[in-house]
């Protein structure tokens, strides 16, 4: 089975390891993701003003192109792409007059009726593959990993497009449990990381990152797992404890490790000490990995 795949810009520029790992893991699960032939940036944030129609054009164009390419359904890895596309889809369905205006503005070339569907990879894993099948595919259970799942915002909110309970999400935790890891919880798992404020209000991000990593550490985590490439950038590069940073990995990378896939196919660079204690060393003699952005 093959599903159309919308990578988004940041997966290509700053998070190629997430894509590598996702494609490898999905292949291992018997699902093929094929990248859309032509696509554009989704715009990252949903346009919240009632009249700012031009800012809906980017996500609407993604859907229109998807349909031109003969697809109805598209999967994305990026939380912000997911959120922006899903919310634009709501606009298309609830306010068709806005789509008419976009069509007219575009010289009739941009035409979309709201009938396509965007899915996050986590939805595919949870709702189509299923945690049982994922568990069955595990070759090296991550028994010694204590994972703090960090959800951030755009997977969950607003509720009407979120893919899990916004106050008590479980999807990442369930996934980590299926891989054999111990899940570490905390009330900051769903608190915003500061997002784009890393561009020019870095102190806001630093404060959020410090609080989140401190909680993860205090609750016993030895790795943070997440999905969003912007959360990843902030958490991986804005920790104030150089040399002793808590590793931040994508869930796809941990899935790959648990599936027994070679670290190189998961975008995990050369070995560090971290997982030598975390993974059974006998099976992972020349392991393994830590990926922090600052080092790449």
């Amino acid at each position: 089975m093959s599903i159309a795949y919308y990578p988004g810009c940041t997966i290509k520029v700053s998070a190629p390891e997430h894509e590598l790992a996702a494609l490898a893991v999905m292949r291992a699960l018997g699902l093929d993701l094929h990248e859309m032939r032509e696509w554009n940036c989704c715009g990252v944030v949903h346009s919240l003003a009632t009249d700012n129609l031009i800012r809906h054009m980017a996500p609407v164009r993604v859907f229109a192109r998807l349909q031109q390419q003969g697809e109805r359904e598209v999967v994305t890895l990026c939380d912000m792409c997911f959120n922006t596309l899903a919310r634009a889809n709501q606009v298309a369905r609830r306010q068709p007059e806005q789509m008419d205006a976009i069509k007219a503005t575009s010289g009739d070339e941009l035409n979309y009726d709201g009938s396509a569907e965007v899915l996050h990879l986590l939805q595919i894993l949870r709702d189509r593959v299923g945690m049982a099948a994922i568990k069955a595919r595990v070759r090296q259970p991550l028994h010694n990993l204590r994972v703090y799942p960090y959800y951030g915002c755009k997977l969950l909110r607003p509720t009407e497009v979120g893919l899990d309970d916004p106050e008590a999400p479980t999807v990442l935790g369930d996934l980590m449990a299926a891989l054999g890891a111990t899940v570490v919880e905390g009330n900051l798992q769903t608190r915003c990381c500061g997002a784009y404020h890393v561009v020019n209000r870095e102190n806001l991000v630093a404060e959020r990152v410090a609080a989140t990593t401190a909680q993860a550490r205090a609750n016993g985590a030895n790795v943070i797992v997440l999905s969003c490439p912007l959360c990843h950038f902030n958490l991986a590069t804005r920790q104030s404890t150089p040399g002793n940073a808590l590793p931040v990995l994508y869930y796809t990378q941990l899935m790959g490790l648990a599936f027994g896939l070679p670290p190189a196919t998961l975008g995990l660079p050369d070995a560090t000490a971290l997982f030598e204690e975390a993974l059974p060393t006998a099976q992972h003699a020349q392991a393994v990995p830590m990926c922090t952005k600052g080092e790449r």
């Binding site: 520029v13 190629p16 940036c41 980017a58 164009r61 575009s106 010289g107």
Partner: peptide
């Protein structure tokens, strides 16, 4: 991967309206 964005950060403002292409 970020060289063009670094030199021309305004490309981050593209709204995909396609006016340029047209």
């Amino acid at each position: 991967a970020n060289t063009l964005l670094q030199h021309f950060p305004e490309i981050a403002g593209c709204v995909a309206c396609n006016t340029c292409t047209r």
